[in-house]
């Protein structure tokens, strides 16, 4: 099936060139494998064809399936799935671009010199990225929506999509809230619509910075950088366990630290 399709592509490239970047790339790859005349290469190409089914849509659906299988154990939120898909599409496009560039000019093409280590390394990483991007490791980032912040009156700030972000991070809102409030050094609470109301004026950028720190400390796995982690409490200590690689680590408890007394002096005591 794949072979047929390639032949088709060779004939019909000008017509469908607008959207079929994967096919284009594939064509070039095939040419290379013929020219280098390397059995290993051919094998690789075959497996590639098997793995990446034709057309961008089907390829991505395949990816999605894979993802879902891997993440089955954890509760996959719909939004999270969406972001993943976006991400996949984006990275996919990038890879295609690279693939075209690199596929067009393998440096050892046409000459019978030895391969350089870097070249082969680049090649293997490109193939890896095409076939299963989750193994390549880099550039895979979870997308979190920017925090939406409203001002309530002049002295309070409302963090609108707080719950949303907690869900994307798979963290208890209480925990996130404790961290946010400790870092901001203020007090706050959840209101009726599950928004976070914080005392003080804060810009969205402030929240973003703090959330970033939160993710680094309490969400991301240090070993494999994956955000699929579970935070659990075992006899008063918080432990982070990675769903991808199975590693675990302890995380620091949230401490508010010193909070200076602000405001009218006679209000406190």
């Amino acid at each position: 099936m794949a072979d047929e399709n390639q032949n088709d592509v060779k004939e019909e490239v000008p017509e469908i060139a607008t959207f079929d970047r994967t096919k284009k790339k594939k064509k070039k790859k095939v040419v290379i494998s013929e020219s280098t005349n390397n059995s290993v290469d051919k094998l690789a190409e075959k497996t590639e064809n098997l793995a990446v089914s034709d057309g961008p849509e089907t390829a991505f659906s395949g990816l999605k399936k894979k993802k879902k299988k891997t993440v089955e154990s954890s509760i996959l939120k719909e939004e999270n799935g969406e972001t993943r898909e976006d991400l996949d599409e984006r990275t996919g496009e990038n890879e295609e671009g690279e693939g075209i560039v690199l596929g067009a000019s393998y440096p050892w093409e046409g000459s019978d010199r030895d391969y350089h280590y870097e070249e082969l390394l680049g090649r293997v990483f490109n193939i890896l990225r095409e076939k299963n991007p989750e193994l390549a490791g880099d550039r895979r980032r979870t997308v979190m929506r920017p925090p939406q912040v409203l001002r309530e009156g002049t002295k309070k700030t409302v963090f609108v999509n707080f719950m949303d972000l907690c869900k994307t991070m798979h963290r208890q809102p209480d925990h996130v809230m404790a961290f946010l409030l400790a870092e901001l050094g203020t007090s706050g609470s959840l209101d009726g619509q599950q928004r976070l109301v914080v005392k003080g004026r804060f810009a969205p950028k402030n929240f973003e910075g703090i959330l970033r720190r939160y993710v680094n400390e309490y969400v991301i796995c240090i070993g494999c950088k994956s955000p699929d982690t579970i935070l659990s409490k075992e006899n008063r200590l918080f432990f982070l366990r990675c769903e991808k690689c199975g590693s675990g680590r302890s995380v620091a408890p949230i401490k508010a630290g010193f909070v200076a007394r602000v405001g009218r002096r006679n209000a406190g005591s």
């Binding site: 901001l184 050094g185 203020t186 003080g200 004026r201 620091a252 630290g257 010193f258 909070v259 200076a260 602000v262 405001g263």
Partner: peptide, 22 residues
């Protein structure tokens, strides 16, 4: 725990703030 020095900022009224070193 490592002996971290915590540098915090705290908002006061208006655009004023406080820095604490602990």
């Amino acid at each position: 725990t490592k002996e971290y020095v915590h540098v915090r900022v705290q908002q006061r009224n208006g655009r004023k703030s406080l820095t604490t070193v602990q």
